[in-house]
Simulated scan of single mutants.
Amino acid sequence: YLDSDIICKGSLASLLTEEFNGNVLMAVHDSFVDTSAVAGINPGLYFNSGFMYFNLPELKDTNLTLQVISKVNENRFSHPDQDALNVLFNDRVKILDHKFNSFFNIDTLAKKGGDAFKITSQTVFIHYVGVTKPWHDWAQYYAEVEYFKIARENSPWKDIPLLAPTTYKQLSRKSTHLKHNGHLLGAFIFYVKYLVNKYQTQKKR
């Protein structure tokens, strides 16, 4: 299973040599989530559900969807499906290297400090976490988006326009990225749009 904001950059050959060793799935550790509210799990084995390599024979008699829904309904999870999956399989997961689920937040490129993980020659799957995705029209300034551009150019959707911001969070992000890349007038315009949209959204609540 792959989240829709993941793109394959490298070969899967090394993944196919991994053994399940009796586990239900393989995944990558997620150290960014506060697991204190998720009872009964080992935080060191808490995995991100963006990439999951399932051992299907072990799941053939398991109604996974109903189990996850049941756990979500019974608890107040901050990351509903991910927390539920961890409760179900935290003791039966094999943790893989981060190259199979390399979290990358495009928005950090417009901030000091950069991202916690880098895209390297070893990266297999890039997971574009955060508000800004590579298919947004304000994400096209960065080399880290080139992998998406190549895939898009070779796809049936190459002529479909990139997405413009619609929510106030997206308008804010576009303003930030425009400013970071020297487009000050555009940044100002989208900041004003952000303020208006945020006011209108909060007024409706």
Rank of each mutant, 00 (worst) to 15 (best):
Q202E: 15
W135P: 01
A37K: 13
T35S: 06
K71N: 10
K203F: 07
C8T: 11
D3K: 02
T123K: 00
F20S: 06
N181G: 01
T62K: 12
K203Q: 10
P57C: 02
K198G: 02
F148M: 04
H29I: 04
Y141M: 08
F51C: 00
M26S: 06
V24L: 07
H29D: 08
G10F: 05
W135E: 06
V129H: 00
F54V: 14
S78G: 05
N73A: 12
K9G: 00
A187Y: 09
Q140R: 13
S175C: 03
D5Y: 06
H183A: 09
R173K: 15
L12C: 06
F89H: 03
I126D: 01
I150E: 08
S31L: 04
S172H: 13
K204N: 08
F20R: 05
L56T: 12
V87L: 14
N23K: 14
V33H: 06
K198V: 04
I189V: 14
K149I: 14
L162I: 05
T166W: 07
T108F: 11
D91W: 07
N90S: 08
F47L: 04
M52Q: 07
T65H: 05
V196D: 03
I41M: 11
V24R: 03
T108V: 09
F125Y: 12
F188A: 15
H127L: 03
E144H: 05
P156Y: 09
L12F: 12
K94M: 06
T65W: 05
G114D: 05
S78V: 02
E19K: 15
I119T: 02
T35H: 06
K179Q: 10
N73S: 10
K204W: 05
G114Y: 11
A27I: 08
S175N: 01
Y168G: 07
S172F: 15
T17R: 08
C8H: 03
G113R: 12
F103C: 04
K179F: 11
T176M: 15
H136M: 15
L25N: 06
T167L: 09
Y194L: 01
A151I: 15
K149R: 15
V145A: 04
A151V: 13
S4N: 13
N197Q: 12
S172L: 10
I189R: 05
I106C: 05
